[in-house]
Write a protein that binds this DNA or RNA. Structure first.
Length: 275
DNA sequence: TCTGTGTTTCCTGATT
DNA sequence: TAATCAGGAAACACAG
């Protein structure tokens, strides 16, 4: 997508992250926003792959779980395929987060099928689906491979076995420290990982090396500020936060190139093999 | 209340 | 000259 210079940020967002893609507002597709309302007439069966990813992103963000905790490539499917997954398929594909995702999609399916307005993504607030492990990242060798463990299309109804019920109701004890929801680097990563929805804000310079460049630095800063409810955010401030990532090796310096950053060894989920 | 984390804000100086 | 980069310092919000 090309964006003309006269195009405002809002209109860019509207055009790329908004109604054209069946969402009423950017806040609905950008993780962390408060108004997480999926359209009632949006049946997950008819979702595209990107809508599936957005749903994943939202559910993870809603529960403040690092989106890199699950291998997105395991959900490289459209809504129809997603809806055909069983409870066990979700566990295989997303590990400990699987039950939460299954619950969410089941609810959405029911909402879509029967138009029961019980609230979008209405997950029980007293349930803690936080990842039970300090950092459930998936090393390349451990990434779930659908070709090895094909996902059976035998959709299960609401879990009924005692074991499954337990996994729905038992709060996990270990919480991941992520007080502010999505981190800045994850926000950047997520823009990069949605090329169809990225309105020319950031682009990959070297996809395999994790090198990327800001095309509209101030627009990205505004978007970040909007997400954090901070209207005074600027690229100056955003870049300061980015530079703090050098020390933590989430980002690596790219010398001599303006607006260019590179994901470091501690950044997860940006590689094509671990999406 | 204290502490740690992850920014946010402001600043100075250097570089492009 | 403006934009950006680099990094120090302090403040802030939040969760545990």
């Amino acid at each position: 997508m090309s964006v003309t210079p006269s195009t405002t940020l809002d209109s860019q967002l509207t055009a790329t992250w908004g109604p054209a893609n069946s969402y009423p507002d950017v806040s609905l597709v950008m993780p962390g926003y408060t108004s997480r309302i999926w359209p009632h007439d949006s049946q997950p069966q008819f979702w595209s792959k990107y809508q599936v990813w957005e749903w994943l992103q939202q559910v993870m963000d809603m529960h403040q779980i690092d989106a890199s905790s699950i291998p997105f490539q395991n959900f490289d499917m459209d809504g129809h395929q997603l809806c055909s997954l069983s409870y066990q398929d979700f566990i295989r594909a997303a590990g400990s987060v699987g039950p939460m995702l299954f619950h969410s999609i089941t609810e959405l399916k029911w909402n879509g099928q029967y138009h029961v307005e019980i609230g979008p993504l209405e997950l029980k607030p007293d349930l803690d689906y936080s990842c039970p492990f300090p950092d459930v990242s998936y090393p390349p060798g451990e990434i779930y491979d659908p070709s090895i463990h094909p996902l059976a299309p035998d959709a299960s109804p609401i879990p009924s076995s005692p074991e499954i019920k337990r996994s729905f109701s038992r709060p996990h004890q270990v919480k991941k420290h992520n007080p502010r929801g999505t981190h800045l680097w994850e926000f950047i990563r997520d823009i990069l990982l949605n090329p169809e929805r990225n309105p020319g804000l950031i682009k990959w310079e070297d996809r395999t090396e994790g090198v990327f460049r800001f095309l509209k630095s101030e627009a990205v800063a505004q978007l970040w500020g909007k997400k954090k409810n901070n209207s005074s955010m600027t690229y100056e401030k955003l870049s300061r936060a980015m530079r703090y990532y050098y020390k933590r090796e989430i980002l690596e310096r790219v010398d001599g190139r303006r607006l260019v950053y590179k994901f470091g060894r501690n950044a997860r989920g940006w590689r094509e093999s671990e999406k």
